[in-house]
């Protein structure tokens, strides 16, 4: 399923899409596949597979710990692509979330080609904005991949317009100014950012590639069913990462970790349906 189809399906069901993040290789190669599969089975519509990177500049302690564990465990870029292949085989729309240097080193076009052949839908790029993305924009178009860029509370309307014009699949709205990690409450500024973004997308309907129909997923700091329900009331998708990792990190053993991930996905799936 494509990312766009996943969002459309959720919309047709009168709910927000549930997007779950997990780094490849965490807690180990098979463990990540098992956990992502559990997330899909329990209600995630879209899976973001993180590419573990040595310098995760925008991540808080939880994802830093997971990524560190994955790298110490020896995960390689080839393993990330194999993980994508396994997760995409579940039928869920599967993206890769990555800092830019590993893709740059692999070769942008080669990465796009190999991601596509693994069944991946595209890339989320937290440290790459459209201005520096020339080779990626070309490769994504060449290989028919989604380009998910981020908008932030600090983004000007002009920047939101540039970013949404270059996005495909969905646009990732960062709910707060800060690094990844669960927070106790959804930032009060988040609805306004989604509203601004939606207005700009609508205004560009006639001129932008998205044709006015680019879904908006909201992430950063969301980790409970109640928060998912709150976000689902104003965004098209709810993105959760650190909370899944926390379940795996805190579990006494592998089976308990998987059960925890499944339980959280089910809780969030209720949330995106407005039942929390």
């Amino acid at each position: 399923m494509s990312v766009r189809d996943a969002y459309d399906k959720a919309k047709a069901e009168g709910r927000a899409a549930l997007v779950g993040y997990l780094p490849a290789g965490f807690p180990d190669y098979q463990g990540a596949i098992d956990a992502a599969t559990a997330m899909v089975e329990a209600g995630c519509d879209v899976i973001e597979i993180g590419l573990p990177y040595s310098d995760p500049m925008m991540d808080g302690p939880t994802i830093q710990d997971a990524v560190h564990q994955a790298l110490v465990g020896g995960v390689r870029v080839a393993d990330v692509l194999r993980t994508v292949e396994a997760v995409a085989a579940t039928g869920a729309a599967t993206l890769v979330m990555t800092y830019w240097n590993p893709v740059d080193r692999y070769g942008v076009d080669a990465f796009a080609r190999d991601l596509k052949s693994a069944g991946g839908q595209g890339l989320i790029t937290p440290d790459l904005t459209p201005e520096e993305a020339g080779p990626w924009l070309a490769a994504a178009d060449e290989h028919d991949l989604d380009k998910v860029f981020l908008v932030a509370l600090s983004s000007t309307d002009e920047r939101i317009e540039t970013i949404t014009r270059h996005s495909r699949g969905f646009v990732y709205a960062a709910s707060l100014m800060g690094v990844t990690g669960a927070r106790t409450a959804v930032n009060t500024g988040a609805p306004r950012l989604v509203e601004r973004t939606r207005t700009i997308i609508g205004k560009d309907a006639g001129t932008a590639p998205h044709g006015g129909a680019l879904p908006i997923g909201l992430g950063l700091g969301v980790g409970t069913g109640a928060q998912a329900a709150e976000v689902a009331a104003f965004a098209d998708g709810v993105i959760v990462g650190s909370a899944f990792i926390r379940r795996l990190l805190d579990a006494p053993d592998r089976a308990a970790g998987l059960a925890g991930v499944r339980e959280l996905a089910a809780e969030l799936a209720e949330g995106v349906r407005g039942r929390a």
Binding site: D127, A152, A174
Partner: peptide
């Protein structure tokens, strides 16, 4: 050079 930075920092 250039600017490979998160969107949140672009305004600053």
């Amino acid at each position: 050079g250039g600017r490979f930075a998160p969107e949140a920092l672009m305004a600053a």
